[in-house]
Every structure is written in C-alpha cells, then in structure tokens.
C-alpha cells in the first residue's frame, strides 16, 4: 500500500542501535575471510587439475620441428642413404630441440600394413604425403613439420627453422605472387599474418616445389594432406604426379590457398647448378639447403653430386661443434 507519509518514529528510542544485517555471523571481517578462503581453494583446485588432469599438455622434450625425409632404399646404395641420414641427424643434434624422423620408402619396414598405401600404382614420389601424415601421428605434440627430399643436404647448421624462417615469415613471403609461374591468375594472398600461415613452400621455374616444404600441425594439415593424397589425383596421371596435384589443389581450392605462403626459393630450397631455377634460386655458399634436383634422371648421378658437397657440410658441421 502506498503511503503518503512515512510511518512515525516511536517516541521512546531504543537503548541500542539496531543491527543493519539480519544474520549475526556475517560481519565484514568474516565475509572477507570466507571470500579469500574460497579464492584460495579455487586456485588450488585449478592448479591441481592442471598438473594432474590435462592430457593435452605438451610433454617436455617434445621437438618443435620435425624433419621428414623419405628414403628410397630400392634405388640408392646404403652408404649414400647413410650420409643423407647422418646429415639430418647431425643437424638435428646441433639443435637439440630439433628431432629427426626418417621414413623409408620401403613401407614394409615402417608401415606393417601397406595394403592401403601401395599408392595404387602411382609414382613413388607420392609417398611423401602419407609420410608427413605419419609424422603428424608419431610426434603428436610438435608444431612444425619440415619435409626435405632425400637428394638434398643441409649445408648451414647455424640456421634454424624457427629463427631464419618461421619468425621472419611475414617479411619473407611473396605477396600477390602467381602460384604457378610466370603468370597464373591465381595469386597468393596479400594480407596474411604469420599465425594464419599453415604451409610454407617455394617455387622454382616450373612451379611449386614440393621437395622442401614446412607444414604446421592442426586440423588444416590433415585436411590438406588427405586432399592432396586423394586417389583421384593419384590415378589422374598428372605429368609431374604429386607436384602437379599440389598445384592443382592450390589453384582450385581457396581454403588451401588461403593458408599458404610462398617464400624465396633459396631460403629452404636452393638448387644445384643446372636445376630448373633462376640465378636467384641457385645455391651459394652459406645457404641453408642444397637440393640436387633432377639428379635421378638424364644421366646424372645423385651420389656423385652429393659427394662434392659432403666434405663441405662435414667441415662446416665439425667447425661448429
């Protein structure tokens, strides 16, 4: 009921001041103590759950970068493959945080059940795709996966993937650059931030170079590799097999293009003289990597070509250790 006037005070004042709160226990100091106690309890529980509960945490000793090289044991001598392995291993040891993973082309030793992965008669260069997928499985906490083809050597142990590529990727990337040279209509995105980049590749004279690429773990990487490995691409007889399939998916599917950057060739993919590259793409001393592109065909000899540089990388590696 609405009263026009407040009720009258009693004319006999009470001898004490009435309590403002109804509950006698809840004095201010006690409230403070209770709140503080609750906070402390919550923090404790939170910490405990983080220490024991989460399985998602990254175990210590996880390599941040995994190097993947598929070895073709059918066509190359063991000695040659051992030098390649040693090159990668030595590099990985130089950077204790890098880990090495070697996959043999002979899947019988690596993937016991190969029935699904006999590549259905497709060229053996396709095996890089399931190999990277396998690396994603084997190193479930690593972030970056660097695929480097067998016929190549890491020449400069001072450079690391993080410091010389990943950290600088925004500066390195070629923006608005035709995906397939010289004048593809499809161009790389001009406004990519480094956290949006999931795939780093280079380009030589003929197109995208799939012999050396860096991939970030994530849902996207699985999607990308599975799409690349689609049986319809393998059976399509692309002239350059997986390389052309890669160019195809990059040009037709914007969800792939939008995650890809192209960086200058020599940063991770310098070619030996005679490779299909401009002057800017050919190896110079001090470059990170040298690849003997095309050495398996046309009467060239990969082992010989690698030999020229074997002493060099050993010397550089020894000098730094």
């Amino acid at each position: 009921m609405h009263m026009a006037m407040p009720s009258r005070k009693s004319s006999t004042p009470r001898p004490y001041t009435p309590r403002s709160r109804g509950v006698p226990m809840l004095r201010r100091s006690r409230v403070q103590a209770i709140v503080l106690g609750l906070c402390a309890l919550a923090t404790l529980l939170f910490t405990i759950s983080h220490i024991f509960g989460s399985s998602e945490s990254i175990p210590s000793g996880t390599p941040p970068v995994v190097i993947i090289t598929v070895l073709d044991t059918d066509h190359y001598s063991k000695a040659y493959l051992d030098t390649i392995k040693q090159n990668r291993n030595d590099y990985a040891k130089k950077h204790a945080d890098l880990m090495l993973m070697l996959c043999y082309l002979d899947y019988a030793t690596f993937f016991p059940e190969t029935t699904d992965y006999d590549l259905a008669g497709a060229p053996s260069s396709w095996s890089r795709v399931p190999a990277v997928r396998h690396a994603l499985t084997k190193f479930p906490h690593s972030t970056w996966f660097w695929f480097l083809e067998q016929n190549s050597l890491i020449m400069n142990p001072a450079m690391t993937v993080e410091s010389s590529i990943l950290d600088k990727v925004e500066g390195l990337m070629l923006k608005n650059h035709p995906v397939v040279p010289p004048d593809s209509v499809i161009k790389t995105f001009p406004h990519l931030k480094s956290h949006q980049v999931d795939l780093i590749v280079t380009q030589d004279n003929t197109g995208l170079a799939q012999g050396s690429f860096i991939l970030r773990r994530g849902e996207w990487s699985k999607f990308f590799l599975d799409t690349w490995f689609d049986p319809l691409y393998r059976s399509y007889n692309f002239q350059k097999a997986d390389a052309h399939a890669l160019e195809h998916i990059v040009q037709w599917h914007p969800t792939i293009l939008s995650k890809l950057v192209i960086i200058p060739q020599r940063t991770i993919n310098a070619y030996i003289k005679g490779g299909p590259a401009d002057e800017s793409g050919l190896y110079k001393d001090g470059d990170f990597v040298i690849r003997f592109v095309g050495c398996e065909t046309g009467g060239r000899d990969c082992i010989k070509e690698a030999d020229q540089f074997s002493k060099q990388w050993r010397a550089v590696f020894d000098a730094r250790s």
């Binding site: 996207w220 689609d230 319809l232 998916i249 037709w252």
Partner: peptide, 18 residues
C-alpha cells in the same frame, strides 16, 4: 571451418572429369 573445407573440395574438376 571444417564445413568450409568440405564445401570447397566437394566438387573438384579432376574428380569430376574421371
């Protein structure tokens, strides 16, 4: 995002041709 990707690769000229 998964849906975007699926819609993107659902139709592909190479698959279609074959």
């Amino acid at each position: 995002q998964w849906t975007d990707r699926l819609l993107d690769v659902w139709w592909d000229p190479v698959g279609y041709e074959q």
